[in-house]
Design a protein around this nucleic acid. Structure first.
Length: 110
DNA sequence: CGGGTGACTCGAC
DNA sequence: CGTCGAGCCACCC
């Protein structure tokens, strides 16, 4: 939908992330057609709390699997707790077995 | 209304 | 190896 800005598409993709999986800002940015705009994905997450729909922003990490955005949650540990409650192991803000839980929109969505 | 900024990423040096 | 800079676009002041 060209009416929708890149911003709105980010939300759509993030909502599609399956439980127990994570993806990266860059992967989302590339999928919505703005490979250099990974920053905007993070910005979208920052604004996600103002969206009526629930956005699983905790399932979005940076490209190496670090919870860079955890400081933006209401509680610092909330992001980690949510991920762990979905079966993802976190150690020192680093997602363990990141390549196994990584969810690539290009491969999972056709 | 113009400029600064950000939950990132990649390539140079 | 590590550090630095540029690019991207929506939002806030």
């Amino acid at each position: 939908m060209k009416d929708k800005c890149f911003f709105d598409r980010v939300y759509e993709v993030v909502r599609l992330i399956p439980r127990g999986r994570v993806t990266t800002y860059g992967a989302i940015a590339r999928y919505v057609g703005a490979p250099q705009s990974s920053r905007m994905v993070g910005w979208a997450m920052n604004a996600s709390h103002s969206q009526t729909d629930f956005i699983p922003a905790h399932r979005v990490v940076n490209r190496i699997g670090v919870l860079t955005g955890k400081n933006h949650f209401r509680h610092e540990n909330l992001m980690q707790e949510l991920l762990e409650s979905e079966g993802i192991r976190i150690e020192n803000d680093q997602v363990q077995a990141f390549d196994k839980v990584f969810w690539d929109p290009y491969k999972e969505l056709i």
